[in-house]
Amino acid sequence: MTTPVLELRGAARVHGSGTTAVHALRGVDLQVAAGELVAVMGPSGSGKSTLLAIAGGLDTATSGEVLVEGVPLSGLDGSGLAQLRRRAVGYVFQELNLLPALTAVENVALPLELDGTRARDARTAALRVLDELGMSGLAGRFPDDLSGGEQQRVAIARALVGERRLVLADEPTGALDSVTGEGVLELLRGRCDAGAACVLVTHEARLAGWADRVVFLRDGLVVDEARAEVLA
């Protein structure tokens, strides 16, 4: 069997201790294979964002295990985790966090440069992704000169640059209108179809409709799953 790109084994996250302990995640098992888009839905406080943070090494499970491409995150030290976050994992958040002083292509190239890639190579890779997302004409623009939808696509390009195998997206369509939001999902879907694994946290069922599987969380536990039917 192929190693899943992401695997959670009984992953739990407790904040605080004793009587005031908050169980954000209570032992979640989840596997996401290459090429798969998995959506996570659930009410506020059900553990969706915690699951995503733990999956990407931004937060640590208090028990259980998280593996990215078969590597247990608990076995990595600070620099190992940082390297994983720069190279293998791409994040898309509702807050775009684009740097206003950098152009679109510079924003996209930044993670590669931080990881030691030569500036010229990083720029070439960034331009390639922007081109793939139909954004090459906007590469030289600053974030303030881009529409909300364009900024979101730049943020996605930044999450995808350098062939990330795992893309984690938390409410990635934010306040975008429905058609632009759908475009964002099409991009993520396309990336999965090209071999990436993607976990999408959303409260919008319409967006979850793009996923191969939809996992439902309640009170920190997986309570159900919807699998897409294969069309005849």
């Binding site: 069922a205 159900d224 699998r227 897409a228």
Partner: peptide, 21 residues
Amino acid sequence: LQRQRTATVRALQTHTRKKKA
């Protein structure tokens, strides 16, 4: 509620796949 939600989301997945095709 959850059983219905799962069924409705599954229907949504099917509509979305048809749209993509």
